[in-house]
Amino acid sequence: MARSSKSATKQRSSKSKQVKSAVRNNINDKLKDELLSYYRDMVLIRRFEEKAGQLYGMGLIGGFCHLYIGQEAVVVGMQAAIDSKSSVVTSYRDHGHMLACGMDPSGVMAELTGRVGGYSKGKGGSMHMFSREKNFFGGHGIVAAQVPIGTGLAFGHKYRDEEAVCLTYLGDGAINQGQVYESFNMAALWQLPCIYIIENNQYGMGTAVSRAAAGRELADRGAAYGIPGDKVDGMDVLEVKKAGERAVEHAISGKGPYILEMTTYRYRGHSMSDPAKYRTKDEVNKMRQERDPIDNVKEKLLLTGLEEKSLKDIDASIRQIVSEAVEFAQTSPEPDPQELYTDVLVNN
């Protein structure tokens, strides 16, 4: 018995070698293009966020600023699974989501600096941006408030018979709020096309998941309502996309909501003023070195035989986009004092 299991292992490993070489040789251009576009989108988010961190340090961005660095694969992979009719809503950690929705980096950066060229004319700031054009519905500062809102967006899609879903993002901390379960119940009851994406970055502010959440997997939190849930490697953009497609297919075909728990990690503090002594430097470094979503795609791309130079070119073009965003964010004027009183109600 020992022998047979040994030979089975051997067989498996030679098989996996074969698969690997097949991947190396036959990886098709389609996948390569796909990976390149994920690489580009993720690097854009990372460079944008690093720059935002720097501008905060210079006092050009104020208040709370929650960076998405480390979590890029989640939003980029999910966005690849939907088309432009679908809607997106998230929390205050929203810069990455907006860039992934195709919102203009200059408009996002100018909102961060509180200028009139920003998406909310400087009135919303880091946590509150919206784009009707891109079906991005914010940008919400109250933990979990976006969850019923996303459920309502899904209600709208169903009401109007659209082939669309709402991607509703929430954190591992947010998952414990009562309104999440009120939403789950309604979404399941009325089979709303809502995909709840739990970005489990291991901490809600300074609280590790295990100190805040009872029970087993967060992916199972919809079980009582009959909502299927998958736990997904949120550091692997291809895994995310695959799971996203599964969930979208389920929701669009009228079977109701779906839960995806993405295991991921934020490299930076909760917000800029978080001293982050609840975790060790080693823990962060290990994640960065071993699980980084961008390095992961980069490796896969290099395996296809792509020259490193092509990636360098992408990097350079992104640096350019981010510099332009910074330039715009610093030169766009402050909002006119009269803006203080506009937009409180629709004038009619």
Partner: peptide
């Protein structure tokens, strides 16, 4: 305080 939600922009916040 002014009868508006609090704006983010530094100049408007001061005015509010």
């Amino acid at each position: 305080g002014e009868d508006v939600p609090m704006p983010y922009a530094a100049n408007l916040e001061m005015l509010a």
